[in-house]
Design a protein around this nucleic acid. Structure first.
Lengths: 199, 199
DNA sequence: CATCGTAAAGAACGGACGTTCTGATGTCAA
DNA sequence: TTGACATCAGAACGTCCGTTCTTTACGATG
């Protein structure tokens, strides 16, 4: 277990108030506003609290000195598998990271796009028809990456391979042929994540 | 519905840069820092940009005047598979959907939790070791649902089946045995989504 | 009863921040 | 070539912010 809990009981209280505020506004306000949030009247004490929360690993600062939450700040949504049976963690209370999944999968939002998967040519890699591919747009890829290439004006999702010095697009399904692109191979992006919705 | 796209091409560019910055720092910095982010030197122009992005519905302000992102800010473009080759998907393009992944997968946040998948017992359903299962907590499930059950104090992900009037937990991998639970079968929740991160 | 530590309040200060105005480019159409 | 408009740069200004320091209240400890 990490030391990720506040040293004293009051700080835990302040932390939850801060979490509630953050859930509403997605930002940590100025010390003056935090006085209202915490229900105290002293800016210096607010700073002391935040310094302790920083030490405990719940908040940190940007290069500009602005306070931002760390991942510890958010209620643990990922259950610990070793939790005793019966009553697993009370997760999912109101304050939680609303954008956890997006954050996990997406590093550079401006270069990331979602592309629905059609067909079962990648089923060997656990990629099914109807899945949503999280694709980071870029031109370069390594052999072994799963890439989105543009073939005949259509997106196609395949593993990038190499045969005899030439790039090929390898499906992960024996029923489909390996694609040997003539001319240049146009790569749209590489697969960085996969999302599937049931029901 | 707001007109969720920037009025001009420059603003789309600035929005991208802001989104990338936010992905790193989870906050929108001061105008001075935004000058660096945007690559311009004029605070007043930064303000003008943010004002326009506010009008377009990508950012808003807290009561303190602090800039914060809206949900539109996080939305991601779902590419239309028939997009012509070579054409980069633009932020402001009107076709296609925008989605926040969390919104897609999670209906009731308070009842939804994420559980890491261990082992390959469900590999036949395209669920691999290391994937993240999006689980909605509930006690009831139908035959055929993929459920998270609690067996010997551990979470286990299996397809719910029925044999001779009794519920069984069926793995999607011939190497694993069907589990015949003695006594009552404790169901933690049902699988509503799956997330995988590559690299 | 004296001392210590915690939990705050409050004032004082310098600087950074947001706002507004004015000016300088560039571009396009008329 | 002239004007309109978009795109920025720069400076001026008042306010609010973060920091630090001093002081107060209060419970526990001894």
């Amino acid at each position: 277990m990490t030391d990720s809990n506040p040293s004293n009981t009051r700080d835990a209280e302040y932390l939850s108030k801060l979490q509630d505020y953050y859930a509403d506004w997605k930002s940590i306000p100025s010390y003056a506003s935090l006085c209202d949030v915490f229900g105290i009247a002293s800016k210096s004490w607010v700073k002391a609290i935040l310094d302790r929360l920083e030490k405990a690993g719940f908040v940190e600062r940007t290069p500009d000195g602005m306070w931002i939450p760390t991942s510890n700040f958010f209620a643990r949504h990922v259950a610990d598998a070793s939790v005793p049976a019966g009553m697993p963690v009370m997760v999912g209370s109101s304050h939680g990271d609303y954008h956890v999944i997006d954050d996990m999968l997406i590093d550079t939002p401006s270069k990331t796009t979602l592309i629905p998967v059609k067909g079962d040519s990648m089923i060997g890699a656990g990629i099914h028809d109807g899945d949503l591919a999280v694709v980071e747009k870029r031109n370069l890829a390594n052999v072994g990456d799963i890439v989105v290439a543009i073939v005949d004006g259509d997106f196609t999702l395949k593993t990038l391979g190499k045969e005899g010095g030439k790039f090929v697009l390898r499906p992960e399904n024996p029923d489909y042929p390996v694609i040997h692109p003539q001319g240049t191979l146009e790569i749209f992006g590489i697969l960085v994540g996969l999302v599937r919705k049931y029901k």
